[in-house]
Design a protein around this nucleic acid. Structure first.
Length: 244
DNA sequence: CCTTGTGTTCTCCG
DNA sequence: CCGGAGAACACAAG
């Protein structure tokens, strides 16, 4: 599921390859990101792309496109949009159709909270995991990295913000930066659908410590199996010994 | 049945 | 009674 590290990986790849090129006869001025939203700046409008749960955004230089199935990263029945770029093609694939693209004249990013580097805790009684998933509180974290961040911080996902000590909040802030930057370094996590702008998988999956590891031995304490619960409707993984 | 990002609706509480 | 926070639900489709 494309979260901040995956979208940032795509942003960087695309920046290198299509800035200055033309899309719909308009030059791409730059490519930025807000949370999980990609923003292509054109001369008099913006192209916004959100990948949702299964979206892929793949750039192929001329004559590099191949036809594949849903594993195949190029053109398939899940290709929802094919933009002609002056030097190739930009493909938007999305099997489950949670993603979208749209053109806007004005950017309205008011529904997004701060990027992780500017994050600070607000007063809240919410549980920490749903709090981190709420894009108004902090932009870019999804289900995988929320679990990984809280494991790294040693905090249970069910803890309430107002019950966290100063020290615990500091720890969480550190873990947010640490986990997200590591994941960017490894070009994101591919669980099933995620591909980078070249159609390749991310490499962070093998560094996951809790997500997708239900009933497997905790990699830290090596004493306890990872527990999976449902929290705010989301699968939530943690270690009962390592997280308090 | 499960999965999740986001938007909407519901409920509770001060 | 109102406003807002937070929880619950709805959506899609493999």
């Amino acid at each position: 599921m494309p979260e901040l590290p995956e979208v940032e990986t795509i942003r960087r790849d695309l920046s290198q390859r299509i800035i200055g090129k033309s899309i719909n006869k308009q030059k791409i001025k730059n490519i930025s990101r807000r949370g999980k939203l990609l923003i292509l700046k054109l001369p008099n409008k913006f192209l916004l792309i959100h990948l949702g749960m299964t979206g892929q955004l793949i750039y192929k230089s001329k004559n590099q496109i191949t036809v594949g199935g849903h594993e195949g990263p190029d053109i398939s029945k899940y290709t929802r949009k094919r933009w002609k770029i002056s030097s190739g093609d930009l493909l938007f694939n999305d099997a489950r159709k949670f993603g979208y693209y749209k053109y806007v004249k004005k950017l309205d990013l008011s529904k997004y909270g701060p990027e992780p580097e500017n994050f600070s805790f607000q007063k809240s009684q919410a549980k920490i995991k749903p709090y981190l998933l709420n894009q108004k509180n902090i932009a870019g974290i999804g289900n995988i990295y929320a679990d990984e961040i809280l494991f790294h911080a040693g905090i249970r996902p069910t803890r309430r913000i107002n019950k966290l000590s100063k020290k615990e909040k500091m720890k969480i802030k550190g873990s947010i930066k640490y986990i997200l930057s590591k994941a960017i370094e490894k070009r994101g996590t591919t669980f099933a659908d995620y591909r980078d702008a070249k159609g390749e998988r991310g490499n962070y999956k093998r560094y996951l410590k809790v997500y997708g590891r239900e009933d497997l031995l905790c990699k830290k304490c090596k004493l306890n199996n990872i527990k999976k619960i449902k929290l705010a409707g989301r699968g939530t993984h943690y270690c009962r010994l390592c997280q308090n």
